Amino acid sequence: MTKSRSGIHTLHIPDPSKAAAGAALDAVTELGDALPDTGPDLYLEYGAKHLRNHLPAEVLDALAQWRYSPTAWLTLANLPGPHEPVPTPRDGFCDESLLRTPNLVHFGILHLLGLTPIAYPWENDGRLIRNVAPRAASADTLTSWGYAQPLDWHTDDSVLDHRPEADAAEAIPHYLSFFGMRNDERVPTDLLPVDTVLETLPDRTAEALRRPDFTVTAPESYTTDDHGRPLSRTVVPVLWTLPDGNAALRYGPGRLTGHTPGARAALADFERHAAGLPGLPVMVEEGGFHIFDNRRVMHRRVPFQPAAEGRARWLRRCYAHRPATAPVPATAG
Rank of each mutant, 00 (worst) to 15 (best):
V187S: 05
H227C: 14
H321A: 14
L55S: 03
L74V: 06
A62R: 14
V235H: 15
R311D: 10
S69P: 00
E185R: 07
V187T: 14
D157P: 01
V105D: 03
R300F: 03
R229Q: 15
D167L: 07
D167E: 14
M298I: 09
L277W: 06
W314L: 01
W145C: 02
L79R: 07
P173F: 04
H50R: 11
L160N: 11
H259T: 05
T189E: 04
W153R: 07
P121D: 10
D37P: 00
T215R: 11
Y251R: 12
V28T: 06
R211Y: 01
R210E: 13
P164V: 04
I129R: 09
H273D: 10
H50G: 06
E220S: 11
G114W: 00
D91S: 01
T143I: 11
P323V: 12
A330R: 14
Y46Q: 15
S221L: 04
N78Q: 05
P40A: 08
A218M: 03
K18C: 11
A62G: 06
D293W: 05
W73Y: 10
P16K: 10
P70S: 08
R204V: 11
T2Y: 02
P134E: 07
I109Y: 05
L142T: 14
A248D: 08
R163A: 13
I129M: 04
D26M: 00
Y319R: 12
L79M: 06
K49D: 12
G262A: 15
V86C: 05
P14F: 09
R233D: 04
R100W: 00
H290D: 06
E123C: 08
G254R: 07
T205P: 02
P261I: 03
R317N: 07
G288P: 02
P14H: 09
G180Y: 03
L192R: 13
G228A: 13
P193H: 08
D125E: 09
S232E: 09
A324D: 13
V105K: 09
H111K: 10
D95K: 03
V28N: 08
W145N: 12
P237K: 12
R186E: 03
E286G: 13
R130F: 01
A308H: 01
R295G: 10
L115W: 01
C318W: 01
K18V: 00
A77M: 01
A27W: 07
T143V: 11
F270W: 15
C94F: 00
A34S: 14
L44C: 15
I109H: 07
E30T: 10
E185I: 07
R182T: 04
T143D: 13
L112K: 06
P329Q: 12
I172C: 11
P243Q: 08
P85D: 02
T217G: 03
R211A: 06
I291Y: 07
I109G: 05
P40N: 10
G146T: 07
G252R: 11
T141S: 15
R300D: 06
S97I: 02
R211T: 00
G258C: 03
A248K: 08
T325H: 11
T215H: 03
N78D: 12
A171Y: 04
L63A: 02
V302F: 02
D41S: 15
L267D: 04
Y46T: 09
A247Y: 06
A218K: 05
E30R: 08
R316D: 02
T234Q: 12
T325K: 14
A332L: 12
L160A: 10
G7M: 09
T331V: 06
N103V: 01
S158F: 00
E220F: 08
